[in-house]
């Protein structure tokens, strides 16, 4: 009962935050609310016992991406451009959203209930991992064992993605060897 109340409260705040993000035009406030959104999502992951995911969401979503968004915001405008509502143009996106949303809700009807022990995810490969992880690797945290050993290729790809993303950012916005030299060049112009 208590956990349901916590879930309802977190989901309620999540929806309120999303609505506030939609309505606000001040990008600074939007960035801070996006961080709050991630923190609430991390809380929800904790109530689902997915602590590794919650940890990542709190550190990346609420922590570092907020800082990176703020530093990107410093290079651009602080307010969104005023949005002119043209009712003729709204029909198609609205229908797209409604149809997609209805399809997603229809899709959830077939899903097993949360924590259902007969769900396919628990009866096939999940149980296999739980019985094999300790004899195979001796690592008590199954998530770590799956990430780094059984699914090592995927994690290698993930690390490569982060490496490539950082290289792309450095190439796009520039990474001068030294800030002082660049400042001298600016001064001489």
């Amino acid at each position: 009962m208590g956990i349901i109340l916590v879930d309802l409260m977190l989901f309620g705040f999540l929806v309120l935050t999303a609505l506030a993000i939609m309505r606000l035009t001040n990008l600074f406030a939007v960035t801070m609310l996006a961080g709050l959104f991630s923190l609430l999502a991390a809380g929800l992951f904790v109530t689902m016992d997915a602590v590794d995911v919650a940890f990542t969401e709190a550190a990346v979503g609420a922590g570092i991406s907020t800082v990176l968004m703020l530093s990107a915001l410093a290079l651009t405008a602080r307010n969104e451009k005023p949005f002119v509502i043209v009712s003729r143009r709204m029909a198609v996106p609205l229908i797209c959203c409604l149809v997609t949303g209805a399809a997603l809700i229809y899709g959830t009807l077939d899903m097993p209930a949360f924590g259902d022990p007969d769900a396919p995810v628990h009866t096939h490969v999940g149980g296999e991992y739980i019985t094999r992880v300790i004899p195979d690797t001796g690592v008590p945290n199954i998530v770590t064992a799956v990430l780094a050993s059984y699914r090592g290729y995927d994690t290698l790809g993930e690390t490569t993605v982060i490496f490539v993303a950082a290289i792309a950012v450095l190439l796009l916005i520039g990474f001068p060897r030294s800030a002082t030299r660049r400042r001298d060049e600016d001064g001489s112009e």
């Binding site: 800082v67 982060i162 993303a165 950012v169 990474f175 800030a179």
Partner: peptide, 11 residues
């Protein structure tokens, strides 16, 4: 990577 992205933005 994270520190580099931040430094790139901030400088």
């Amino acid at each position: 990577a994270m520190t580099a992205i931040f430094v790139a933005f901030a400088t």
